[in-house]
Design a protein around this nucleic acid. Sequence first.
DNA 1: AATATTGTTCAGCA
DNA 2: GTGCTGAACAATAT
Length: 275
Amino acid sequence: MTGAAPDDDRKIRMPELPEVEIYKRYVDRHALNQKIVSISVHDARILSAVTGRGLHKSLSGSRFLETFRHGKHLFVRSSRPVWLHLHFGMSGDLAYYKSPAATPRFARVIFHFAGEGHLAYEDMRLFGRVGLSRDPQKTIRERRLGVDPLDPDFREKDFVELMKKRRGAIKALLMRQDLIAGMGNLYVDEALFQAGILPRRNVQTLSDKQLEKLFTRARAILTSSIRRKSQGRGNPPGSLIRHRAQGDECPRCRGMIERDVVAGRTTYYCHDHQG
DNA sequence: AATATTGTTCAGCA
DNA sequence: GTGCTGAACAATAT
């Protein structure tokens, strides 16, 4: 989907909330209101609770009408009473193209539109899922997804209340999709970096003010990432995402970036200004 | 050729 | 119930 990616994003393109929001806009721009003439499943392992035949029967002949994102999940409403449900795992992506010669190498499911358009769901590592949902809100409940951090009804004080009920490392909590849906390893590290909080800090040792700041920073990072990506730009100078390497200089102080495993994931942080 | 990587889920343990 | 760790999944880069 992404054409010429900025240098700093070449290796880092995990589908977290901002990336999925970009996928949503990509579908909005390219794939709505066209008749789906057929669907080809190149690898059925990507399908969730549906067969290739079932997908074809449900959606062929219909059109995609609108999209809805919750956390890292994308729902696409069909002109029939069913939604396409996409999760992008670690390497999922979308590609809309005209010539069959442009079919992506790792295309797993392809929607063929009347005319000459094709929308491919591609996923090299097959950790993503393609399925159907009769009711996205119901699917969100069943999957036990927490609130979307960009939901305007979810305020700083709600975040503080949510976190104060918990114990354990703040990073582990921010990663949990059943509490807050949408943040992954990279954006959690970035938010903690910008809020000056070490990933291992126990949530119970953080003040209300620190938690508020953390959420404010997290939300600002997510929205600015969406804005920058939609403009074809990469991550801003001074962001940790551009310095995810042990021994790099901290982009905001004289410290060094350190690497560790927190909440089971490789974690980068600056021990000088994160406390 | 072995290792690290990455999101999600789940089993096992304190 | 809660939190933590490690495994499993797939495929690639180093």
